[in-house]
Amino acid sequence: MSQLIIQDLKVSIGDKPVVKGLSLTVNQGEVHAIMGPNGTGKSTLAKAIAGHPDYAITGGDVLLDGQSVLAMQPDERARAGLFLAFQYPSEVPGVTIANFVRAALQARLGESADLDATSYYKKLYEKMDLLKIDRKFTSRAVNEGFSGGEKKRCEILQMAMLEPKFSMMDETDSGLDIDALRIVADGVNKLRTGQLGIVLITHYQRLLNYIVPDFVHVMYDGRIVRSGNKDLAVELEARGYAWVKKELAAASA
């Protein structure tokens, strides 16, 4: 069984510590939601694990199936089985979705083998149908001129095609209306076949009505301050993040 272990992870942006000792273990097939107010380090955690060059890891470790990924380049981490669904995916003008995903799959095969075009397109169309994405999208440039919902579905499509072991989904619900949210959530649920581990980063409980998590963690000031099951998310929604802050203040007083 695959396992992603985040051990006492500390991340800084420039001189500023943002993630301040965070630990979390995600087993294959589990969905962990990380909730928290803005500016608490949720996105930084996801990007740092993916290897973004602007984020310096100053302590702790990230182990994928027992192997540290910290010495790996971003592309190596991805090929090892990590995936980041971006909150704000980049536009890549002139590169079609078909060519982009193809390059990503080819990278996993190496120079020696060529991707079989027929089976590639078969799989791509299957996943597009699954995610209710119009097949015409294959020839559109990645994210260029896409609506918010189209960008998020394009992220899920890539996740479906690349079949990572663990996916960090960064604010996948942000900027989506309820219909778009439902389509994206349906897509993610269809990929919950027990193989994929998911870290779902969100500010709102709303998404968790559609993607029901196995575990919910509350992140505040760079740490996980509370963990529980899906009921924690409901409680959080009802009482607000101020409740967590107040409790923490009381505890440290």
Partner: peptide, 26 residues
């Protein structure tokens, strides 16, 4: 953009090549 491509497993050299072709495609 580079990080986005690399985060999909595409090596930096191949990522740059893709971006050059994207740039030329217009």
């Amino acid at each position: 953009q580079m990080f986005y491509l690399e985060s999909r497993g595409i090596a930096p050299s191949a990522a740059r090549e893709l971006l050059v072709f994207g740039f030329f495609e217009e």
